[in-house]
């Protein structure tokens, strides 16, 4: 069976999703500070790599990358409430893009598996 990534349209869909997802994240006062920065392009590239990973697309993400990449944010107070909000906004993004509910659930489940690594537990 093809991956969720392929089912929703591969890389082109990913670009649209990242742009929309990033808008939601930056507009959200609870989590925006973890995503702000002068180098927005690099941020967007990371979001794209993450979305590609949780949708089963081609990626090289490892748990270790997840840990390393979020360590400094955990030190700044990143916790479960922020993780939950990101998953929620990811779901809202996919709903807006017309992704069927069962696929969104699959994606949310995969995102959930990264929780311990992201929060460095």
């Amino acid at each position: 069976m093809s991956s969720v990534y392929e089912q929703i349209g591969g890389e082109a869909a990913m670009d649209a999703a990242v742009e929309l997802f990033y808008r939601k994240v930056l507009a959200d006062d609870h989590i925006s500070r973890f995503f702000e920065g002068v180098d927005m392009e690099r941020q967007a590239a990371k979001q794209k790599a993450f979305l590609t990973m949780v949708m089963g697309g081609p990626n090289n993400y490892t748990g270790l990358d997840m840990r390393e990449g979020h360590k400094h944010l955990v030190a700044q107070g990143l916790d479960d409430s922020h993780f939950d909000r990101v998953v929620e906004l990811l779901g809202a993004t996919l709903t807006e893009l017309g992704v069927p509910g069962n696929l969104i659930q699959q994606i949310a489940d995969t995102a959930e598996t990264t929780r311990a690594d992201v929060l460095n537990r």
């Binding site: 742009e19 990033y22 808008r23 930056l26 507009a27 925006s32 702000e36 920065g37 002068v38 927005m40 392009e41 967007a44």
Partner: peptide, 26 residues
């Protein structure tokens, strides 16, 4: 200055411009 550019980036992006269309020097 970096602080202003950061604010401008967020603002201009959230007001509708695509991230690929933003050029910045801080």
């Amino acid at each position: 200055p970096p602080g202003v550019v950061k604010l401008l980036r967020k603002k201009v992006f959230l007001n509708g411009a695509a991230s690929a269309d933003l050029y910045a020097v801080a």
